[in-house]
Amino acid sequence: MKTKLFLSSLLVVCTLFTACAKKNDQTTQPADPAKQNTGNTDAGTSASVVDNADTFEKAISSKGTWIVAITKDLTVNKDLVVEGEFKNGKKDDKGNDQIQRKIALYSQDENRNITARFTLTAPKMTFRSPQGSLQHGTFKGDLYVDVKGFQLIDAKVDGNVYFTSEENKSTFKMDDKSSITGKQEVKK
């Protein structure tokens, strides 16, 4: 009887110790792409996880957040504008804050494996945030790139991509997993 009590007590202590240790482990990354560990978090580095058009529109505004992650397919029946300059909470090699704006069209597990991809649909989306990207999902509509250094990362644009300058087009990057069904051209 005493042995069972001792083993039960030991099990409870070990469980508590393990839970407390995991809470303090800064290397554990959350399953949600919008909740990645970015160090000290403030209004500029926080994230928005959204599941409706109104919240999405607010999140992509200049008063929004550096990363906007949708949690399901989303349709917005008006033109969208992604604007504002945001810090992602990371530093570059020189210790300067990194600027980034990410639209995450996916969810992932605790090992960063993509578990679902989503489609964002709108007639038009204009991207004005520096170091912007669409990642791991589909955008249905025409995309206007009004910033240099925009990226598609494992993303599909089911529509056209228009660049507002030759520089914006020449600094655009798209990985080999990404695709665009329409044309890519400069259109002022």
Rank of each mutant, 00 (worst) to 15 (best):
M1T: 01
M1Y: 06
T3S: 15
L7S: 12
L7Q: 10
L7G: 09
S9H: 11
L10E: 11
V12W: 15
V13Q: 09
V13P: 08
V13G: 11
V13K: 07
C14R: 09
F17L: 11
A19K: 02
A19T: 03
K22Y: 11
N24Y: 01
N24W: 01
D25P: 09
T27F: 04
P30F: 04
P30C: 06
P30I: 00
P30N: 14
P30G: 07
A31D: 13
D32R: 14
A34S: 12
A34M: 07
K35D: 07
T38I: 02
T38N: 11
G39K: 04
G44E: 12
G44V: 07
G44P: 06
S48G: 02
S48T: 06
S48H: 08
V50D: 02
V50A: 01
D51T: 01
N52S: 07
T55N: 13
F56P: 10
E57S: 13
E57F: 05
E57L: 14
E57C: 13
E57Q: 15
K58Q: 15
I60N: 09
I60V: 07
I60W: 00
S62N: 13
T65H: 15
I67N: 03
V68C: 03
V68D: 02
T71Y: 00
K72V: 02
K72F: 02
K72L: 00
D73E: 06
N77V: 02
L80T: 03
E83W: 08
G84P: 05
E85R: 15
K87E: 12
N88L: 11
K90C: 00
D93P: 07
D93T: 09
G95N: 10
G95T: 10
N96V: 03
Q98F: 02
Q100L: 06
Q100K: 10
R101K: 14
R101F: 13
R101I: 05
K102Q: 05
I103W: 12
I103K: 00
L105C: 09
Y106S: 00
D109S: 07
T115Q: 11
R117F: 10
T119G: 14
T119F: 11
L120V: 10
L120K: 08
T121C: 03
A122Y: 14
P123K: 14
M125D: 02
F127T: 03
R128A: 07
S129F: 15
P130I: 12
Q131S: 15
Q135C: 09
H136V: 05
Y144I: 13
D146N: 11
V147S: 00
K148R: 04
G149W: 08
G149T: 12
G149C: 06
F150E: 07
Q151P: 07
I153S: 03
A155Q: 07
K156H: 13
K156E: 11
D158C: 13
G159V: 01
N160S: 08
Y162R: 14
Y162M: 10
F163D: 08
T164S: 11
T164N: 12
S165T: 08
N168Y: 15
N168C: 10
T171N: 03
K173H: 13
K183R: 01
E185A: 05
E185F: 04
V186C: 09
V186F: 10
K187Q: 06
